[in-house]
């Protein structure tokens, strides 16, 4: 991600943001509320169109055609998004589909995977995030923690090159946070490439390869986790961290 800027109604939310996530790495994005973390994440898969700058996924530019000017057609943009997983703060499961259907929907109808294969893979993924027994339930009966684990399985089912997490535990009761973080920790250990916006400092410290701290739309610090938490370089980061200790 290079020099990405984005404004809403004249207010600059992202300013010349650069971000590099190497394959297999987990990068945590921290920052105060309203600093532009969600917008940053949503620019990566073009849910928000940046005003300037460019975003490359495994070397291919998203949202813009090869000529660098014209918009990517719907179909091509969709194909690129299929390679980027996303897990939402408010889960955003599809309520008319059962758990297993939520997980197989995109592999079957976006990737064109055979139904049997998609179901087999989905069952394994649900097992892996610990909700195999909820296979045929509908989302409205699940707890928040279960919903979010379905959300993670749904993203994984696409075999993405990177997964974006936007505060995946912020809408959860404290006792449910652990189960979601455990699933994410396992993914990070397997070498999944992840960009995580979170307020879970202990998790960020333990799991991340790098911490990116943003404030008012600017990347203020970019450090290894120990360095960031133990020796923040800037006053803004120190102030931010003081609220969590």
């Amino acid at each position: 991600m290079r020099n990405v800027s984005k404004s809403f109604a004249g207010i600059e939310v992202l300013r010349e943001v650069c971000l590099n996530v190497a394959h297999g790495q987990t990068v945590s994005v921290l920052g105060p509320s309203g600093s532009g973390k969600s917008t940053l994440l949503r620019c990566i898969n073009w849910l928000e169109e940046p005003d300037s700058g460019e975003i490359l996924i495994a070397g291919v530019r998203i949202g813009v055609r090869a000529d660098g000017k014209t918009h990517m057609p719907d179909r091509e943009l969709a194909r690129m998004r299929a390679r980027i997983g996303m897990v939402f703060q408010s889960f955003n499961l599809w309520p008319h589909l059962s758990v297993i259907e939520n997980v197989t929907e995109a592999p079957i109808h976006v990737l064109g995977m055979a139904e049997d294969e998609a179901i087999g893979r989905a069952e394994k993924l649900l097992e892996k995030v610990g909700i195999g027994e909820k296979r045929d339930a509908y989302p409205y009966v699940l707890s928040g923690g279960q919903k979010q684990r379905v959300g993670i399985a749904r993203a994984l089912a696409m075999n993405p090159e990177v997964i974006l997490f936007d505060e995946p535990t912020s809408a959860l009761d404290p006792e449910l946070v652990g189960e979601v973080l455990a699933a994410m920790r396992a993914l990070a250990e397997e070498g999944m490439t992840m960009v995580v916006v979170t307020h879970e400092m202990a998790f960020a410290r333990e799991v991340s390869d790098e911490i990116v701290f943003i404030d008012q739309g600017c990347v203020v610090e970019r450090q290894a986790p120990e360095a960031f938490f133990d020796r923040p370089q800037t006053a803004r980061a120190r102030q931010f961290l003081s609220r969590y200790t």
Binding site: N45, L47, D74, R75, A78, R79, R81, A82, R83, I84, G85, M86, F88, S90, F91, N92, L93, W94, P95, H96, E105, A106, H109, V110, L111, R154, A155, M158
Partner: peptide
């Protein structure tokens, strides 16, 4: 709106999102 966003994020084209996610609901 989150459901539609989730569909887009999972690679649905506008038409497929409508047909598979929005219209049935």
């Amino acid at each position: 709106t989150g459901q539609a966003e989730a569909a887009r994020a999972h690679g649905f084209t506008t038409f497929m999102m409508y047909r598979r996610i929005i219209l049935p609901q």
